[in-house]
Design a protein around this nucleic acid. Structure first.
Lengths: 240, 240
DNA sequence: GAGTGGTCTAGACCACCAA
DNA sequence: TGGTGGTCTAGACCACTCA
């Protein structure tokens, strides 16, 4: 073994696998080598590789499929598509929302966004504004900010082509996969502009969801602010 | 082995351990038998017991401490006290809130609460109303509903004695431990009564948090509605 | 039937903790 | 020093998938 030392073997294996993911050695949706193959490659026993993969699987970074192999998780697959969406209808169902793009243009990072995305204040960003509709009625007003460099290819056309599924686009077009996100929720009253865009009275209570999404290695990549009407929907959370 | 069959051994072990927890064979905070002891008791290898305990530990039902043993998780311990509290100050810190009890009386279950608590509509419940204060200013208005039978001993005096830490009281006084909770969040405007109790203007946006808490075996035991001011606090959530 | 992940075992050694 | 959980191994067998 000539790998990073002084931590459990399976942790080192986990790090090595993560590095291969970062390097795009295996792309989202593809199978990674089998457990025995990785075991011989890293010169450890299968059980040790297994434990490393176990952890990556519970973190939703890899997906095991018995009899087939272990795959790089993706936002593409059915059933995982809405993994980060916690907003559900009153009856508990998650429905696909319609996407109406309002704008997609370059801008400069505000100090708050810059801090959260770990870039310099004022650096170039791509800003996307859109409306998500539920049965033709506005439900969410989204403001998305991306650092310009890694997201150079993001255009209105691309977003339309993916029907507003931003994470799927990041993955397939840019090879950037979001693995984790932090959300901060507050209740606010709709101001003039927001009330206008959502078609509401001034001061209507809205659920404000600020989200920072991270790719491998806890690198923040996307900032997002969603303002949601919660008359017929609610944010669902399970605590353990 | 004369235990439940047709599922992986470690799952059966997990079930057996859970049953012992339900039966209060080991109480919150106590150590359970060592892995080797359980292995001989159940006539399986230590690794199999280990895997069962692993899962119970990731579910926060048991807590491992190297060199000491495995313990029944508790809301008593420092650092775990606020496990279900997702409301943090703007700077990200969790602070203990002051508790002002408004009322504690018997009532009848509304149809919604009855459905969520899995009891009959109109059956006897205990209703607690309280105000949580942050630096002497009202922050949360709580309405808590408990089925009367298992929670017979809940009185205003008891609640005061535990300084408003309901889960600690359930555990130590009644042996009821909450292991999981579902929360539904919406944004609402303060109505007359709420505005009055929180000292706010009518229509002030509030974060509404409806929570159902479960004990072992997914049995719902507590319903709770919290109305929170989010001027200087927010609800923090981590998505994986 | 060959290859994959899933379970189970038995035993070794390490790291930590308490008396 | 003895007991606990934590890591690692090697090998067996099972369950599932696909050609």
């Amino acid at each position: 073994m000539n790998a990073p030392n002084f931590s459990p073997l399976y942790q080192q294996i986990k790090t090595l696998i993560t590095q291969s993911l970062v390097a795009n050695e295996w792309r989202p949706g593809e199978a990674i080598p089998s457990e025995v193959e990785l075991a011989t490659r890293f010169n450890v026993s299968q059980g040790t590789v297994r434990k490393a993969i176990d952890e990556l699987a519970t973190e939703n970074i890899l997906v095991r499929r018995q009899g087939k192999g272990t795959f790089v998780a993706t936002h593409e697959a059915e059933g995982i598509k809405l993994r980060f969406l916690r907003l559900v209808a009153a009856d508990g169902t998650k429905e696909l929302l319609n996407n109406r793009l309002l704008s997609c243009e370059r801008g400069k990072a505000s100090s708050r966004v810059a801090r959260l995305l770990n870039v310099k204040t004022g650096s170039v960003v791509i800003e996307v504004k859109r409306l998500l509709l539920f049965s033709n009625k506005p439900l969410i007003l989204d403001h998305i900010v991306l650092p310009a460099t890694p997201f150079k290819g993001v255009t209105a056309e691309r977003i339309e082509a993916f029907n507003g599924s931003m994470y799927r686009m990041y993955e397939t077009q840019l090879g950037i996969r979001m693995v984790r996100a932090d959300e901060r929720l507050t209740a606010i009253g709709a101001d003039g502009e927001v009330a206008n865009q959502l078609g509401l009275a001034l001061g209507t209570p809205l659920l404000s969801i600020e989200r920072v999404s991270y790719t491998y290695g806890d690198k923040p990549m996307e900032w997002r602010l969603g303002l949601c009407l919660t008359d017929n929907h609610h944010y669902m959370n399970e605590l353990e």
